[in-house]
Design a protein around this nucleic acid. Sequence first.
DNA 1: ACCCTGTTTGAACGGGCGTTCAAAATTCTA
DNA 2: TAGAATTTTGAACGCCCGTTCAAACAGGGT
Lengths: 204, 204
Amino acid sequence: MSSKRTATTGSAHVRERRQQRQRDILHAALRAFRENGYHATTLDDIAGHLGVRKTALYHYFPDKEAILYECHRESLNEIRRVMKEAMKLETATERLGYVIREHVRVITGNLDGSPLALEVPALSTERQAEIIATRDRYERDLRKLIEQGVKSGEFREVDSKIAAFVILGAINWIARWYRPEGALHARELGTEFADHLLGGLACR
Amino acid sequence: MSSKRTATTGSAHVRERRQQRQRDILHAALRAFRENGYHATTLDDIAGHLGVRKTALYHYFPDKEAILYECHRESLNEIRRVMKEAMKLETATERLGYVIREHVRVITGNLDGSPLALEVPALSTERQAEIIATRDRYERDLRKLIEQGVKSGEFREVDSKIAAFVILGAINWIARWYRPEGALHARELGTEFADHLLGGLACR
DNA sequence: ACCCTGTTTGAACGGGCGTTCAAAATTCTA
DNA sequence: TAGAATTTTGAACGCCCGTTCAAACAGGGT
């Protein structure tokens, strides 16, 4: 009694291909969302990038909002994984540097996208609440990380709230101007941003 | 032979009231755009905030896009005025501090809005070109300002392009989380951001 | 009180776009 | 190659929203 939506039936190979197709769709959608915004992006736009009609998308996602939702989930999961990984490092400086570099990587990466840069209000109320809750957890972790650095004497005394907003803003804003074909490349960007933003916290 | 649109006719008092009404509309639109984005905002939304039907708006603006366009123009003019004003100051540190504080003020202010934070791609091609050109001029000025600071020895050696993006991103991102009713107030925000972002440039 | 100008309204139109669905095309399985 | 499962398609529906327009309304000057 599985619904059409979940589609638990089918062989392993088929399921695998289906997942790959879903990833393709998310990828195309993410790119379009980032460039034109959610509302300005039509399903035809997304489907067109895949050489397919928009109705084909409905075999993989129930509606347009679900695509945006998955983009958010994907990105947020990645970014929270980064935060967890960072905690294995020793000093606050190392941890924050790692988070910044990886966050930049996620933003500029193709598959995962611009997590906080996407339009949240377009989601339904419940989904919005979930995404915001996850995002807030990440932001809280980031603030804590900064406060640790202040306590340990690595950073100067700053308002962790503002410091976190500065860092998040600088990074998320990348989604607005970054183009893969551009002069600035992703890898260097991460270290440069880390340098710069850590510099703003260093003791003088 | 004046067109309906320009409406050069009418007494001084009438013209004044009209301009005030236009400002009211821009104000309401700006708030709605910032909260929900351009495409998700309907003319009914904007008109509703003014206790009026959407058709009334057409007496002041030819179409929806024109409202967004005016929002952009208003904000960009303000921000470029700030840059000009900053040039009267002596050191690069003073200048940059002034620009940051004032840019934050413009972003958090009610009347003027979030200039670079608004959705540019929604504009028609020609208007888009104009807005982007003006914005680029501002960004170039900002980069030059940073380079001056590097040359004078006030700032450490940084890539002015990246430094400018960090600053712009941090500030423009404010539009995404700032709420006038919130705990963080506009005036302090400006100085805190200036402290923080200048700290990122200071020699160590 | 009356007109003239400026302002607002309600009704209606038209297009765009998300969505549905049955049928065609493609791919897998045996 | 036959049949079954999966994927894609084209046509059509319906809603939302920007836009138009003629008509109603307001209000200030004479």
